[in-house]
């Protein structure tokens, strides 16, 4: 029996739509910040979130086309599969830029000081493998590209590495700050990175549950919704941590960090 995607539910479509909107808002704020400051790390971060946004848009558009055309015959193009696969490819590019951003902000650390751009370069090559895997599945079956567990797990590992680098260095920097608002900034970034890891963990668990757990064969398991909820949380924390809106600055500013 052909491995066909499940029908897209309206709830899933709305959830992905909200995620896409949330990322788009963060992207707009990041570009505004870049045009105010004109600094390299600001544009790198904006590009990171742009690719993540393109990934979310791909999933949303793929799901929307699928939703509007369903039920879709087995021999017709399975749009939702394209949405997810292209989404993962954009997410892999986002991982590449995230590690470049980390290497720019934490350039003083021995890891980046001694290796120059070797870490981002190796990370880019390994994330390129994700894109290669996706191109492979599209070529193998252009009508219904597989949404395989292997590529989902591989991408989870690569995302885990990228966010772990951000986490590790942000925790270190958080311990050295002088003011509460700086500590809050790094805390939000740490929270955003943790939420980022949880998104892909939940997407992988959704795939595992769909493939191996009886009763979840139809897909769109609770893990997927939890994952997207983490995506909204990641965007909210990223907005707070990277943009630091005025009300947050006022809330934390001028108070010394004694903790």
């Amino acid at each position: 029996m052909a491995d066909l995607p499940s029908d897209v539910s309206l709830g899933a479509l709305i959830t992905v739509g909200i995620v896409t909107l949330a990322v788009t808002i963060v992207v707009i704020f990041l570009y505004i910040r870049y045009f105010e400051r004109r600094r390299l790390p600001a544009i790198t971060l904006a590009v990171t979130f742009t690719f993540w946004d393109l990934g979310a848009i791909s999933v949303f558009v793929g799901s929307l086309i699928h939703y509007l055309r369903q039920p879709i015959a087995a021999e017709s193009i399975q749009a939702v599969r394209y949405g997810f696969n292209i989404g993962y490819a954009f997410s892999a590019i986002s991982n590449i830029f995230l590690v470049i951003f980390v290497s720019q902000i934490f350039a003083q650390s021995p890891m980046f000081r001694k290796t120059y751009k070797l870490v981002p370069l190796i990370n880019a090559i390994f994330n390129g493998v994700t894109i290669g895997l996706i191109i492979d599945v599209i070529i193998a079956d252009p009508t219904n590209p597989a949404y395989g567990l292997a590529q989902t797990i591989y991408h989870l590992v690569m995302t885990f590495i990228a966010f772990l680098l951000l986490l590790f260095f942000s925790i270190g920097a958080r311990g050295k700050v002088q003011f509460r608002w700086e500590k809050a900034g790094f805390s939000f970034i740490i929270g955003s990175a943790l939420a980022g890891i949880m998104i892909y963990l939940m997407l992988a668990l959704d795939r595992v549950a769909t493939l191996f757990v009886p009763g979840f064969e139809e897909g769109y398991t609770p893990f997927l919704y939890i994952g997207w909820t983490f995506a909204i949380l990641m965007c909210t924390l990223a907005y707070a941590g990277y943009i630091m809106p005025m009300f947050l600055r006022r809330l934390f500013k001028e108070e010394k960090n004694h903790g």
Partner: peptide, 16 residues
């Protein structure tokens, strides 16, 4: 150190 600023300075310069 002459070339690179601290992560906190970089965050303040680029984003915060």
């Amino acid at each position: 150190h002459l070339k690179e600023e601290s992560p906190i300075d970089k965050m303040k310069d680029a984003l915060w």
